[in-house]
Nucleic acid binder design. Structure first.
Lengths: 224, 224
DNA sequence: TCAAAAAGTCAAAAATTGGTCAATTTGCAG
DNA sequence: CTGCAAATTGACCAATTTTTGACTTTTTGA
């Protein structure tokens, strides 16, 4: 069966070029021109998504997170600029790779193929992060200590995931808020205090250990 | 140590709002109202520039290019309109990000902070090791003598960092105050005396050595 | 030697930060 | 619509840091 690739980009020129090229390479190509279309296109269950993070109406990272809630296939960002921080943000949002514009078709197809291969190999193996006997399944968004489920809520899971992915680094509340809620989110980073408390309670309850350390005046850190 | 931010915009209302807000956030703000002033303001070596690309007299992109010839700090465009082409042009001219008007102050400061962090990280801030086994980790803001932690508070760490970075130079209290609290901070440089005392106690306690020397009538000096 | 200026000490006030709780709002499945 | 869980908020307290001001000691130069 041909692999299905979803192209989410608002530049008509580019999407047409890409879809015809990918079809030539034996893939099935689908195009979405905005966030709305992208979400509804997920019903075709694409095997890979090419996502422009600079589409109007919606922050690409936010969109990526939404996509991640529904599918586990590789997501490759198409983007003009790319810095270390972008990569980190992108990975946190659930992205798998970056392709910076302008790119050659050759490069693009090479990367697409690589990710599809990798994905094939790791099918049935959800992304799991573990730390001291704590098992976090990013695909299912579950968290267990041995047999014990942690029952983290969505926000709680987001925060745990962010801290675990960046274990041993210190983040103040503002930065955690930015990372989880998004850069242009309005609101108060004071909520973090409450979420951290809830998370700590659940962690303590299930594991008896302390995972989140407070560094006074600096923020919180996930102890690995 | 306070970051210096140059605001280049001809709208007085906006620049005043921005500069007062940025100052509240702990930055030093400088304002330039036209291209000429912007160029000459580069002498303060800002850590980040907010640039209105619609100033009269001069094309903002041209100005950006000129700035880029002199400094390497992040340049964020303030702009009303924004298209894909604008972004490409802006990036080619040496810009790092766009903020479209109208924007919330929260979003602005979040982006400013993000870019400053990114910039900081890309410098790969090295651990500074002072003489005689005192190890200061700038990323984690920790300070150890062998295994012994110094437990410096934030202010204390700022002062130590400043003095160490400029080891063997003499600074009077006023200069240290300006360097750590920021140029436009108001207050008494007498606090320095107390902080120096606390730092000295902690250093003595942990290391048994004297690191901060008093040069009578002149100020303090970090002995390397 | 003595007075003035500079630096050091100390304790307590003020400000900031972190933790907890209860109350309210939001979002969503039934 | 209703009801429930999740998410958020605001108030409050405790821990910790930061600042202040009075006071002492040291240094300098007349």
């Amino acid at each position: 069966m041909a692999y299905k690739i979803l192209i989410a980009d608002d530049e008509k020129m580019l999407t047409e070029l890409l879809s015809s090229h990918l079809q030539k390479c034996g893939y099935e190509a689908f195009v979405a021109e905005n966030a709305q279309q992208t979400i509804s296109m997920l019903n075709v269950y694409p095997d890979l998504i090419l996502l422009d993070i600079n589409m109007p109406e919606m922050d690409g990272l936010e969109l990526c997170k939404m996509i991640r809630q529904n599918v586990v296939c590789p997501i490759l960002f198409l983007t003009a600029r790319i810095t270390e921080q972008d990569k980190i943000n992108g990975l946190q949002a659930g992205g798998d790779d970056y392709i910076t514009k302008p790119f050659s078709l050759k490069e693009l197809t090479a990367r697409v193929a690589a990710h599809l291969r990798r994905d094939e190999r790791s099918k049935c193996t959800p992304k799991i992060v573990s730390s001291q006997g704590l098992i976090v399944n990013l695909a299912e968004r579950t968290c267990f200590y041995g047999e014990k489920p942690l029952n983290l809520s969505n926000r709680e899971f987001d925060i745990v995931e962010f801290l675990m992915r960046n274990a041993n680094q210190i983040f103040d509340r503002e930065r955690i808020y930015e990372a989880v809620w998004g850069l242009n989110a309005e609101g108060d980073s004071g909520v973090i205090k409450e979420h951290i408390r809830k998370i700590r309670n659940k962690l303590k309850e299930a594991t008896g250990r302390e995972y989140i350390e407070t560094v006074w005046g600096m923020g919180y850190r996930w102890k690995k």
